[in-house]
């Protein structure tokens, strides 16, 4: 176990929870920690590229892709989302208060060397292909996460 390693499981694809995850990841990296984020289930939506990428998909996979938010810019709030109006209001307040956007936080985390791992099982279930997700990710399963978690002294499930 190392006092200088933190791992975060990002299960949620909600804007507020994604922001919390990335604020912690950025903060931990700035404290000199090695940080690994493991994205699974709804959390994968945060990593989708905003543009539509043509891929071969089954009908169900295509439906999933169509119904879920395409990328960090499209996420909703976990509370008071009101069909997206809540998220728009929240983003406008955060802009006013000069809070970093989720996209800026992702970029900053990447620049600080935060490792981002996408769960391949969830990707398979939801029909996400590697080319549909943002660059710089690693693709792995639960054993990779557990291996990283064993070495860390903080593990969060968000």
């Amino acid at each position: 176990m190392s006092e200088n390693k933190k791992t975060i499981i990002v299960f949620s694809g909600d804007l507020d929870k994604a922001m919390a995850s990335f604020i912690i990841a950025n903060g931990a990296a700035a404290m000199g920690n090695e940080v690994s984020m493991f994205f699974t289930f709804w959390g994968l939506n945060i990593l989708r590229k905003p543009e539509k990428i043509r891929t071969r998909k089954s009908f169900m996979e295509a439906m999933f892709g169509w119904m879920m938010p395409r990328g960090a810019g499209k996420l909703g709030l976990s509370k008071m989302n009101f069909g997206g109006i809540g998220a728009i209001m929240m983003k406008s307040i955060m802009k006013q208060k000069k809070v970093n956007t989720i996209q800026e936080l992702i970029e900053s985390a990447r620049a600080l060397g935060v490792k981002m791992i996408a769960c391949t099982m969830s990707m398979d279930v939801m029909g996400f292909k590697e080319e549909e997700l943002i660059d710089g990710l690693e693709f792995a399963g639960v054993a990779t996460y557990l291996g990283e978690a064993d070495e860390a002294n903080v593990n969060l499930f968000i």
Partner: peptide, 14 residues
């Protein structure tokens, strides 16, 4: 100035 958490510590770290 004007940066919100975790902006300041990220900047200082860099």
């Amino acid at each position: 100035r004007g940066l919100q958490c975790p902006g300041p510590i990220v900047q200082i770290f860099k």
